[in-house]
Amino acid sequence: MSPTVTTFLFEAANFLVFATVLGWLFFKPVRQAITNYREKFEADNQLAAQNLAEAEKVRKEIDDTHAHLQAEMNELRASELEVIRRQADQILMEARAAADREREQSHLQASRMSDVQQDRLGEVSAMVTAEMVKRLLEQIGGPDLQSSLIQSACQRLASFSQDSIAPVKIESSLPLSEEQVTEIKDALGSAATSADFRMVDGLGVGVRISTAKGLIDASASGLSQFARQSLVKEMQRQSNNDNPNQSVNDV
């Protein structure tokens, strides 16, 4: 065989064997590996897409929950706020009521205090008035006053019915003259027999005649007491007529 033909045949066979071996040992497994790789890649891709979708879902859920919670929280906050506002209102109202009460009480107290003061003032003024009347009477006192007082007492005695006035007690601080005694006795009439004349301290000028029908006080102390009593009565009447609220508001 010529070398050229041998070479030709050998090269053809060599190449065919080479291609077959390469195809079986290299191309086929590598192609298989590429397919596997692609499949794995595809599976990974799919898995990633699935995971992404799942994550998206979870995120949406979380978002929903978050929004829900937010709404709930807002609601809760609003209700809490409402409750707190109401409580605050209540507290405010209570405080206002308490303040009103306190104020009223203090007004009441103030009015009472003013009343008490008024009473005391009245009493003091009454006492002062009584004292002044007494002193005035003592200053202007004398036999004229004595006699005029006795005259007025006698006039009053005369208004009583003379039967039932016994026993009669006649008290005086100053000694009575004879004319005065007879004048009293005249006034007493039938009861003059049982009349009892006494000397008493503290009466000043004038006499005090106590009968079964009543007391006739025509002495300086009696006048002053009468003046005091009438003054107190007048003041009480005036304070009762006044409107307390108006007085409070004025304060």
């Binding site: 050229t4 033909v5 070479t7 030709f8 045949l9 090269e11 053809a12 190449f15 065919l16």
Partner: peptide
């Protein structure tokens, strides 16, 4: 020879 063998293949 080689190239013609390849070409013949």
């Amino acid at each position: 020879a080689t190239t013609s063998a390849l070409a013949v293949v």
